[in-house]
């Protein structure tokens, strides 16, 4: 089985959106275009987090994973979520194929356990070798200020993990709110994930949290890239 590109948007935030479109709807829109949306909610040590339902619902409609973590365990979470979502994406494709070939109700789970083992082996191979395009969308509202060093560290960590993979990976970094728009691109598509950590801005921009519009805007980055690819061919 030859695998195309796995496309993911990873949203890092610490709270609830407060303006613009519903982020859940935007995540569903992303999923329809073949982009999985994962969400990691970063909470303070002291208080229990609010707006957690939103984090889970964005990931659910985006077909991805969600986690709520403290800043200090962000690094391993970013890597694990990315990996698990890749596995999830591959399984979704297999389920789709099964449904097309056999019938509507067939999923990997309806096969006997021994057959699943063979599929799992294949899925692992694919997730190691497939091309990954990962866009990191980071909330830079005022409350994130103290968590930004942890985000930077997590991005560095992600680059280390992805470099150990045999498949090709590329990355892009977006932050929100932007100066003139909901979100802005900080680093365009690059093979070098270290760049994300190295040039990660340490200044929170404050103000509103337009999570929905930010997702919508960041998605254009995937589309632009495709157009560019077509041209270059």
């Amino acid at each position: 089985m030859k695998m195309g590109t796995i496309r993911q948007l990873l949203l890092l935030t610490d709270g609830c959106s407060n303006t613009g479109e519903d982020p859940g709807a935007m995540a569903a829109f992303a999923l329809r275009q073949g982009i999985t949306v994962n969400v990691i909610g970063i909470v303070d040590d002291s208080k229990s987090a609010e707006g957690l339902e939103e984090i889970e619902s964005i990931a659910r409609s985006g077909g991805g994973e969600s986690r709520i973590v403290k800043a200090r365990s962000l690094s391993e979470t970013v890597v694990n979520v990315t990996r698990q979502a890749m596995t999830g994406t591959i399984y979704n494709i297999i389920n789709q194929e099964l449904r097309d070939i056999l019938n509507e109700d067939t999923r990997v789970e309806s096969l006997p356990p021994e057959k699943r083992g063979k599929i799992a082996e294949k899925v692992e191979d694919i997730s190691e070798e497939a091309e990954l395009k990962l866009l990191v969308l980071t909330d830079m509202s005022a409350s994130m200020k103290l968590k930004l060093p942890a985000v930077k560290e997590a991005l560095y960590d992600l680059s280390v993990s992805m470099q150990s993979r045999s498949g090709h990976s590329s990355f892009s970094l977006w932050t929100f709110p932007g100066k003139y728009s909901a979100a802005e691109e900080r680093i365009g598509w690059t093979d070098n994930a270290k760049k994300l950590a190295e040039s990660f801005p340490q200044l929170a921009s404050g103000g509103i949290t337009p999570t929905g519009p930010a997702i919508r805007q960041a998605l254009t980055s995937f589309l632009d890239m495709e157009r560019y690819d077509e041209k270059s061919i």
């Binding site: 596995t87 999830g88 399984y91 990997v108 789970e109 356990p113 699943r116 083992g117 599929i119 799992a120 082996e121 899925v123 692992e124």
Partner: peptide, 13 residues
């Protein structure tokens, strides 16, 4: 989940 069971089963075997 199904993916974890299948992959851990493979590992154990």
């Amino acid at each position: 989940d199904s993916a974890a069971v299948a992959s851990e089963t493979n590992t154990l075997k």
